[in-house]
Write a protein that binds this DNA or RNA. Structure first.
Lengths: 290, 290
DNA sequence: ATGATCCTGAAATTATTTCTTCACGAAGGT
DNA sequence: ACCTTCGTGAAGAAATAATTTCAGGATCAT
């Protein structure tokens, strides 16, 4: 039995007058650092409040629950709703569409993925990866798999503007071995590998490692086996209501890395970008206005 | 038994490699809206993760707890510390990093972008675009620009699996005109064009339009001039604290379109995907397990 | 291929929790 | 002062949860 749209805290306050002495003591204890105090066993809750267990059982029944477990389940639900903040647990993104519309369901999942991924990201790993990528003394190689090729491509395109010595490895063909020839110790290899982890990618990682290269890995929550060889691993949540996995969280992390690396390298990147602008001007590639 | 100064989430991550398949599945479930998911009874936790109760008991022991109740008690302590901490303002995504850290600022911006983009999306446009793309009678062409080439690539790769008659146009070279030769009235051209709108892209749109093609445009909030020729336009917010624009919202919309088109075409797509699986099996391209 | 090893969940066992009953004691009315 | 009424917690009963055992099954090395 669970009343809708009313928190247990509110119910406690509402019912406070009709409670007995020991029950008020209990209600007080529950509201004190609510709602965690109510999550232990009935024995613990009773002890914390300084009352007996039957008092607890009686009070939750007074509040309209069938028993203590029922009460506790409701408390957990409430906590869950509170923890996942209102922005991410929005449910309806496109207000004109029903909740069940794919636009809403998908967006909800992606928002959750992002929040999840970001709260669990390791800042030191992030900073380390950015420092590695900003080091002009080392070459950077970028490689992706079947699906992640586009991400690798995106990352490569940006890095190429930011700094010199960036190479994209075509992992599909067998030609990727050629790139290993010029790999020096300390060089940085950025690898993308998500579900349906690829054998070629793993082999490449292993061999690059033997060459003394440092590996930055972008993978999913289950971690590609490349992880064994990687210096920095970024795990993104990728599960969405679709037959495919989502690359959005990985894309987000990529872009943040790009932004941060650019901060590091700004002195030299600035010149590169100006030069690029000049060259674009001469190609009349882009529209001048609008 | 309780280790100090290390959260269970961190321990789960640290131990992830030494966990078995079912245990990883469990760890995953626990980290998903952590830490509330771990607060139910062992039975509930097991069921939520889709594993058996012994698996839960085994894993918490691996993590160094004497048993499930011990594990849960630690989880509650952790939660209490987190709740009572006044700095639990949730506009911070990476809790260990300051608000001003690029990870938080960037994510904040992207979240806002997604929200705004989605609230402004037109459902009819969305549905119309998906219907167009699901029509097996018409050919689909995909074309991107300098930055958006990766997005086009990503979209193409998925569409190619979903249905026949999908072509990626390389807009960089001059060869794109060749593709216009075979374009029939009613064919669908998916165009990506964001800031620094490209002349070649606009020209292509114009000429495709003259051929009677329908155009689906993915652009930014300021709308590429291609919009004039487009049947369906998707505008994504792309502004982030970076020298570059963000492609995350566009990627999100792409993925939703892919998911929805797949719904429409599932009957035929299913066969295609099964065949693809068979062929992959024969190539030994992917790792069989893990 | 084959055997050894390890993982996994069903079932049984054990422990714990939750609920109920009941007797004691306090408060308030007669 | 006595009785009635109600609140309270101790103790036991019932229910539920946690752990252990075990056999089938998957994986890996040979």
């Amino acid at each position: 039995m669970t009343e809708p749209a009313e928190t247990i805290a509110e119910r406690l306050h509402a019912a406070f007058d009709s409670l007995t002495r020991a029950e008020r003591q209990l209600a007080d204890s529950l509201l004190q650092n609510y709602p965690v105090s109510g999550l232990g066993s009935i024995t613990l809750v009773a002890k914390a409040a300084g009352v007996s267990t039957p008092t607890v059982a009686r009070m939750v029944q007074k509040l309209g629950f069938t028993g203590f477990p029922d009460f506790q389940a409701e408390l957990r639900r409430e906590l869950e709703a509170k923890i996942s903040d209102p922005i991410t647990k929005h449910d309806t993104w496109v207000e004109k569409a029903p909740d069940a519309h794919i636009l809403n369901r998908f967006t909800d999942a992606v928002m959750g993925n992002i929040r999840q991924t970001l709260t669990q990201i390791d800042i030191e790993t992030f900073d380390r990866a950015c420092t590695l990528l900003a080091d002009p003394g080392q070459s950077v190689y970028v490689v992706g798999g079947r699906i992640t090729r586009s991400l690798a491509d995106y990352f490569f395109m940006h890095m190429q503007v930011l700094r010199a010595d960036v190479t994209q490895i075509q992992s599909m063909s067998n030609a990727w071995v050629h790139y290993l020839l010029d790999m020096k110790p300390g060089d940085v290899v950025v690898i993308f590998d998500v579900r349906r982890y690829e054998n070629a990618t793993l082999k490449l990682a292993e061999m690059a490692r033997e060459k003394g290269a440092r590996i930055i890995l972008f993978t999913d929550q289950w971690r590609s086996p490349v992880h064994e060889f990687a210096d920095c691993t970024f795990c993104g949540r990728i599960v969405v209501p679709s037959a495919w996995d989502s690359s959005v969280t990985l894309m987000l992390m990529l872009e943040i890395v790009i932004a941060e690396v650019q901060e590091h390298t700004w002195a030299s990147t600035r010149k590169r970008m100006e030069e690029l602008e000049d060259m674009f001007d001469r190609t009349r590639f882009f529209r001048k206005f609008t």
